[in-house]
């Protein structure tokens, strides 16, 4: 899993360093997914044991998965979805207004 996350981060940064704004947004998407997977992995994944308390007991029997990282990832996915939807609309609109998808040509506001 660690390798997958590493590759995802690397490819996200590579995509963001390209000049096209579409690739920039793809990079952002991969980046947010990589961060989500990272949360999942570092907080210790437990397979096949949902954090449920069996009937009649007051605490779960045996090892169960930690529900908190799942809640965090779920929240982060929702937020990332909203933000990326905005980003996609933004690049579409920017392409219409500026007339190019090359980031090197979008430097009017920098000088």
């Amino acid at each position: 899993m660690a390798y997958v996350i590493g590759v995802l981060f690397a490819s996200a940064v590579y995509m963001m360093l390209r000049r096209s704004i579409v690739k920039l947004v793809i990079g952002l998407m991969i980046l947010s997914n990589a961060a989500n997977l990272l949360i999942f992995t570092v907080s210790g994944m437990t397979r096949g044991s949902p954090p449920l308390i069996p009937e009649g007991l007051t605490e779960p029997a045996g090892v169960v998965a930690d529900p908190l990282p799942q809640a965090l990832v779920l929240t982060a996915i929702v937020i990332a979805f909203g933000v990326l939807a905005f980003a996609v609309v933004l690049i579409h609109r920017a392409y219409e207004v500026v007339g190019t998808d090359d980031l090197d040509k979008m430097k009017d506001t920098d000088t």
Binding site: I21, V97, D108
Partner: peptide
């Protein structure tokens, strides 16, 4: 939605 706003926003958002 002016041109400068779009260019600024892309940098800001990224």
């Amino acid at each position: 939605g002016e041109r400068a706003q779009m260019e600024g926003a892309i940098k800001y958002v990224t």
